[in-house]
Amino acid sequence: MPASPSAVAAPPPVSAAPPDRTGGSDFAPLARRVREGGLLDRRPGYYARAIALNLVATAAVWAAIAWAGASWWAVLLGVPLAVLSARTAFLGHDAGHRQIARSAKGNRWLGLLLGNLLLGMGHGWWSDKHNRHHANPNHVGKDPDVGEGVLAWTEEQASRQRGPLRWVARHQAALFFPLLTLEGFNLKVGSALFLRGRPRRVQLLEGGLLLAHSVGYLALTFALLSPGKAVALILVHHALFGVHLGSVFAPNHKGMEMPEPGARWGHLRRQVLTSRNVRGGVVVDWLMGGLNYQIEHHLFPGIPRCSLRRVRPLVMEHCERVGLPYTETGLVESYRQALGHMREVGAELRAESARR
């Protein structure tokens, strides 16, 4: 490793379970129930199995690529490779929330190894961005996930788009999934750019691991495949990886409440009203890395993934008791609502274009 554990720069911790507030908090009774039920307890055995199985499966796919290297069929193995990369990203996400190891340092190292080394996605960059998202989900100006960029999340943002981005805003609902094919590359570029201006020890450690990933990934791919097949595999792998991750995160908040500037909501209201759950059983649980329990995850970010299903009925019951809407839909309906919001945001621009 480029540095000792003591040299690991600790990004702001991704929010753990919030404190059990007293007095007038409508969250405190729920927090007590969850804590007393042992649902916040770490599950190292579960995560040890999950990490081991994912590593073995990833190695098996690379072995299959080596075996099929003479054929263009090897490129199709970018599909399972993308799915397994998403599993690695979910595990890195859980480490960032300190769900896995008992110590902050242990979770930090897991995040660095899973994110920087295995994925080429910076743990520090992700933690900084994701921490701000959890603190103020769907809050324009505070949540980077609804900040101004290629896509617009409010009519005001759409009205400010210029040039090609204005055309994108008009058609962003239709363009959303095609644009996600670039997200796998964007995550790597964003991770590298984040290191500019960071302390030197952070640049050496995180940058060294990112470089090790890039060199190892490219060396392995071009060693096993001809140049044409190697480039094709890289494109398929990263395109589907981006689509997979985007498909998991899109239904969670898009189309949900967006607090007005200056709004001061309590923890329960802020997290529940801005989040949407996706039901679907164990298959959806696995494909979405447990993030289909988005409400529970936002209320208790430090809870192990395997406990989210058990927390759900407690949260539903509590929300009903305090009169707070709890949103849960099927997978297809969640996309319909998310894309419907994006289409609505671009409606005025489409009307403007039609009037010309």
Rank of each mutant, 00 (worst) to 15 (best):
A70L: 13
L235A: 15
L119Y: 00
V168A: 02
L193R: 15
G37Y: 09
A63M: 06
H97L: 08
P261F: 10
W73Y: 10
L117I: 05
S85E: 11
G24E: 12
E36W: 06
L209I: 08
G115Q: 09
G289D: 08
D94G: 09
H318S: 01
L81I: 04
M342S: 04
H298I: 08
G216Y: 03
A104P: 12
F176R: 13
L209A: 04
L211A: 11
L314N: 00
R87Y: 08
F194M: 03
L118A: 14
F241E: 03
L268N: 02
P251W: 07
M258I: 12
L245K: 10
W153S: 00
R305M: 13
E155A: 14
T274D: 06
A82V: 11
R321D: 02
Y326I: 10
L224I: 05
G228P: 06
E352N: 09
G330D: 00
P137V: 00
H267M: 04
G228E: 06
H134N: 05
L240M: 11
W67A: 15
E333N: 04
P261R: 01
H139E: 15
L180A: 04
L113T: 09
L55P: 14
H171N: 13
D128G: 12
P80A: 04
L224S: 04
R35N: 05
G346D: 00
A86P: 07
A152Q: 03
A250Y: 14
E333A: 12
V278Y: 00
Y326Q: 11
D41C: 09
A173N: 09
A57K: 11
H253M: 06
P29F: 09
A239V: 01
L349Q: 03
L84A: 00
A212V: 02
L112S: 01
L210H: 02
V315S: 00
A263N: 02
L193Y: 02
V140Q: 07
G302E: 05
G302W: 01
S191I: 03
F177S: 07
P44C: 03
R166I: 03
K229G: 06
H139K: 13
F177M: 14
S4W: 15
V75M: 01
N131V: 09
N186E: 14
A351G: 13
V243E: 02
L193E: 07
L180S: 12
P44V: 05
G290L: 02
V56C: 05
G111N: 03
A135G: 14
G208W: 02
V231G: 12
A59H: 07
R166F: 03
L39K: 00
L175N: 02
H133Y: 12
Y46H: 15
V146C: 08
E317W: 01
A31W: 05
M288E: 11
H130P: 12
V236M: 08
D41S: 08
L349W: 01
P304H: 02
G115L: 07
A89L: 13
Y217K: 13
